[in-house]
């Protein structure tokens, strides 16, 4: 299903780049001044927006004979499409890390130094002018990624099933629930687990729902 995955990646080029730019900005200077819980919400907004767009595409092509009539199960076809969305979220995550690295230590002209900076950000070993309190730990980076993915999966599911209220509620729960964890307690690990479960759950449910529509 590589052909389906690659086609979907190209079809999501513009919204994917938009999400990448938005996530890059979240790693930027203005975002650093935002407290972590609020930044969680922003990640959810980006993920939800991207999920909304892909959900609209899914809905339009739910009965697409050209897409679905091929010697592969509907599950594999829709899984490939879902992975295409996750591919762009991964690109966005790299953009975010790049934005962080850029802000904390300007890009060197040597690309390998910039890459080293990104690794240091992920490991939480970055010293910053803004102080260590606003330098994201690795688990926070994971949390941001999961919130984005959860909001994406929930929004996509809601739009595909024509349940906008459900989409808004579940996206809000994914975002605000995690925000609440991070704001009230330093229990980031629990928030990571909960959001991860939500992300996987919504993705799987959406995949089975799309695949089941044809069976």
């Amino acid at each position: 299903m590589r052909a389906v995955w690659w086609r979907e990646v190209r079809e999501l080029l513009l919204p994917g780049l938009g999400a990448g730019v938005a996530l890059w900005a979240l790693g930027g200077d203005w975002a650093v001044r935002t407290q972590h819980p609020d930044r969680v919400a922003l990640f959810g907004v980006v993920g939800g927006g991207f999920g909304l767009f892909q959900g609209l595409l899914d809905r339009r092509r739910r009965d697409d004979g050209f897409l679905l009539h091929r010697p592969a199960s509907a599950l594999r076809v829709h899984a490939a499409r879902g992975l295409a969305g996750l591919t762009w979220l991964l690109v966005g995550a790299l953009a975010f890390a790049g934005g962080l690295a850029y802000e904390r230590q300007r890009w060197d002209s040597f690309p390998w130094i910039a890459y080293r900076d990104m690794l240091r950000v992920a490991e939480g070993r970055f010293d910053s002018d803004h102080g260590p309190a606003v330098t994201p730990r690795a688990e926070l980076l994971v949390l941001f990624g999961l919130v984005t993915a959860a909001a994406w999966a929930a929004a996509r599911f809601g739009v595909t099933r024509r349940r906008p209220v459900l989409a808004v509620l579940t996206t809000g729960i994914a975002v605000l629930g995690t925000w609440s964890f991070v704001a009230r307690t330093p229990d980031v690990p629990s928030a990571v687990v909960a959001t991860g479960i939500a992300a996987v759950g919504w993705f799987t449910w959406g995949l089975l729902d799309l695949a089941g529509a044809r069976r």
Partner: peptide
């Protein structure tokens, strides 16, 4: 399903793809 050929109503094809891309896309499947 691979033994069935299908031409849909209105000949739906991805509009942004080039003809060669469409051929490659179907050939891969």
């Amino acid at each position: 399903r691979g033994r069935i050929g299908y031409v849909g109503e209105g000949h739906p094809l991805p509009r942004w793809m080039k003809v060669a891309d469409v051929v490659a896309y179907q050939a891969a499947a």
